[in-house]
């Protein structure tokens, strides 16, 4: 069974005269697979990721999304997370006054509770965070601060991957996780992501740059334009896009 099945998804910005952004998008993701989505600015990549995570600024007007056999669009935001959907944000937000450790723990325990699992003990939690943070080069001082508060752009991206590593989702959606990362950080973050690759976990990696896909090697590459997937292929498609750009797709769709 597919982990994620998006069928002919149409969505617009909420409100009566909201502009349609997704215009019949279909995508099937099986456990263990890594799908890369590339496409010009404004083609709807972040919108897709927000709709999967449950942001209510958008209204789905047609189509269906099935996650692990259930209707994803019917679920509350936090329910989706507990079921295993994780979005690493393109622009992670700062949450002043909520310490990173408090936040991580609240999130992990809330998810476990919803799944009927026991809360993690304090020592187990601290050990888990320390180990995962170490791998990603996140120091204790950052963990003590408010969530993302005063983090640099690259640090914010790393913190997103730390959250992912701790929450262990089934579906990881990475929205431009590579933007803002220096060369070394790109390697560290990619290693963090690769460590999470497993036969029962899938990833959707949104990126503008082929470079990331050298580190996180995808099984499929999709080109998105004007709210639809206009071409799919293997990892070599990313190289072709790098060389030729999106001109031919934009003409097709116009």
């Amino acid at each position: 069974m597919a982990l994620l099945d998006i069928d002919n998804l149409h969505a617009r910005i909420g409100g009566d005269h909201g502009k349609e952004i997704l215009k019949g998008l279909s995508l099937t993701v099986n456990p263990g697979e890594v799908h890369a989505i590339m496409g010009p600015n404004g083609s709807g990549k972040s919108t897709l990721s927000y709709i999967l995570a449950g942001k209510d600024d958008y209204e789905v007007t047609d189509g269906a999304v099935t996650f692990d056999g259930e209707n994803l669009l019917d679920m509350e935001i936090d329910e989706r997370a507990a079921k295993g959907v994780f979005l690493a944000f393109q622009y992670p937000i700062e949450v002043p006054g909520v310490a990173t450790m408090t936040f991580l723990r609240a999130a992990l325990n809330a998810q476990r509770k919803k799944r009927g699992e026991a809360e993690v003990s304090t020592p187990d939690f601290l050990r888990l965070v320390k180990e995962r943070a170490g791998h990603l080069g996140i120091n204790q001082d950052m963990l003590r601060r408010g969530v993302n508060v005063g983090f640099s752009g690259g640090e914010k991206k790393r913190a997103e991957i730390l959250q992912m590593a701790i929450l262990q989702p089934k579906l990881c959606i990475l929205d431009e996780t590579d933007s803002g990362l220096d060369i070394d950080a790109l390697k560290v973050v990619s290693e963090g992501v690769n460590a999470l690759r497993s036969p029962d976990r899938a990833m959707i990696v949104i990126t503008h740059y082929q470079r990331l896909l050298n580190h996180i090697v995808p099984d499929f590459v999709h080109v998105m334009n004007k709210g639809r997937i206009v071409r799919s292929g293997g990892k070599e498609l990313a190289l072709e896009l790098e060389a030729n750009g999106y001109a031919e797709y934009q003409q097709d769709a116009a």
């Binding site: 935001i77 507990a82 909520v98 609240a106 809330a110």
Partner: peptide, 20 residues
Amino acid sequence: FYLRARGISLKDAQSLLVQA
């Protein structure tokens, strides 16, 4: 949205933010 996207319920997310 950010807090809920990590699995925290609406009420708990509100509580965390009010406390902050």
